[in-house]
Design a protein around this nucleic acid. Structure first.
Length: 153
DNA sequence: GCCAACGTTGGC
DNA sequence: GCCAACGTTGGC
């Protein structure tokens, strides 16, 4: 099993929003970065787990956990002209972009702030903390997963 | 709102 | 295939 981190701006889509949906499940659409797409398409597997991370907000940080409940499949918003994720280059034969389904499994009582992660031993090499990394989904090692979970309440 | 860092685009 | 210009991300 692998571990991941899903970044989202809470103003657009928060962990509360995910919990409010039936089965606390939704598709993670709108990925329009090739590196992130390749991770999703090639490496994410049903049953993997992930952190839900709130970005571009008052206290950026890890707010809970999700489970990946489907393998990658075509992101239909790429072919929807009304979607803000519309991509004219996406076709039925070559959908270009994909998404997975995620289910919220836990919301922490308190956010684990980015500032705490930065100060926590063992997380020095975390992709999230590496300079200039702007991927919206990224890998988390098993060791990092364990360390971060211990910080949660 | 600023700005550093990075990805994408398009002219050549 | 190079690279300048531009757009986006996201912490501060």
């Amino acid at each position: 099993m692998k571990y991941w981190l899903f970044k989202s701006e809470p103003d657009a889509f928060s962990i509360e929003d995910l919990f409010a949906l039936p089965n606390a499940t939704d598709h993670w659409d709108g990925i329009r970065n090739y590196q992130a797409r390749n991770i999703m398409r090639d490496d994410m597997k049903k049953g993997d787990k992930g952190f839900f991370y709130h970005s571009s907000c008052k206290v950026p940080g890890v707010v809970g956990e999700v489970k990946i409940v489907s393998a990658a499949y075509p992101d239909h918003t790429a072919r929807d002209k009304r979607s803000k994720y519309y991509d004219p280059k996406a076709t039925e034969e070559d959908p270009r972009w994909c998404m997975v389904d995620v289910q919220a499994t836990q919301q922490y009582q308190e956010v684990i702030p980015l500032t705490t992660l930065k100060q926590t031993p063992g997380l020095e090499d975390m992709t999230l903390l590496r300079r200039g990394n702007r991927l919206s989904i990224m890998p988390v090692s098993a060791a990092e997963w364990r360390i971060i979970r211990k910080l949660a309440r």
